[in-house]
């Protein structure tokens, strides 16, 4: 593995800061911006690791797609400024998680991984060939998963017209009145 330029640490700092912001901020919109920042940092790291295509996909799908979808979900589902609540004992969870990280981090720092001297010259053609020839079943399964996810998301998020459980009582009364009026029209 050829050396990564030390300036990659700037992206590490950006990604770490963004991640911390996204889990700690109270305002949900600010948290989403923190997530976008973290994803930008990770995309920058992908660039340093010699995979510009994955970096571009990261920015396109995560920053351009998922973050924006979350902003839309906030507009649809969340009234800003609501208090979150919850027990403070939950913060004790930091202890086992921190312990887990201590063990894993210590092991990762001590370990020496088999590093090839090959330069990391990777080829988009090679990735495509791997995906479409050697791992084509995974690829096709993934396309089915994406299709099902899209259809499922639409079905879940759709308003139920029949029961109309989303409507307020006034709206229900109004629509009932309309129905009655249209029925009268049809009768006459």
């Amino acid at each position: 593995m050829d050396a990564v330029h030390p300036s990659a640490w700037a992206f590490v700092v950006v990604a770490l800061g963004g991640a911390l912001l996204s889990v700690s901020l109270r305002n949900i919109l600010h948290a989403i911006f923190g997530l976008a920042l973290a994803l930008f940092g990770i995309a920058g790291l992908f660039l340093y690791l010699g995979s510009p295509f994955v970096a571009a996909m990261e920015v396109l799908i995560y920053v351009g797609g998922i973050s924006v979808a979350m902003v839309f979900a906030v507009m649809l589902a969340y009234s800003l400024g609501k208090k979150e609540g919850g027990s403070t004992r939950r913060f004790l969870a930091v202890v086992p998680v921190g312990g887990f990280f201590g063990v894993v981090g210590y092991a990762l720092l001590r370990a020496s991984f088999a590093v090839t001297s090959k330069t990391g010259s990777w080829d988009l053609k090679l990735v495509g060939r791997k995906l479409l020839l050697d791992y084509n079943v995974v690829f096709e399964a993934l396309s089915v998963v994406l299709l099902l996810a899209i259809v499922g998301a639409i079905i879940i998020a759709r308003r139920d017209e029949k029961t109309g459980d989303d409507k307020t009582a006034d709206e229900k009364a109004a629509s009932k009145g309309n129905d009655a009026a249209s029925a009268e029209e049809r009768a006459s």
């Binding site: 996909m57 995906l131 996810a149 899209i150």
Partner: peptide, 29 residues
């Protein structure tokens, strides 16, 4: 993937990204 000079890691990363997009769509719905 970079350390071992093997391109397969990129393929799996792309798959994870696609799955994450599906998960986010269903989760937000």
């Amino acid at each position: 993937s970079r350390a071992r000079g093997d391109v397969l890691g990129h393929g799996f990363t792309l798959m994870i990204i696609a799955l994450a997009a599906a998960e986010a769509a269903v989760g937000l719905a």
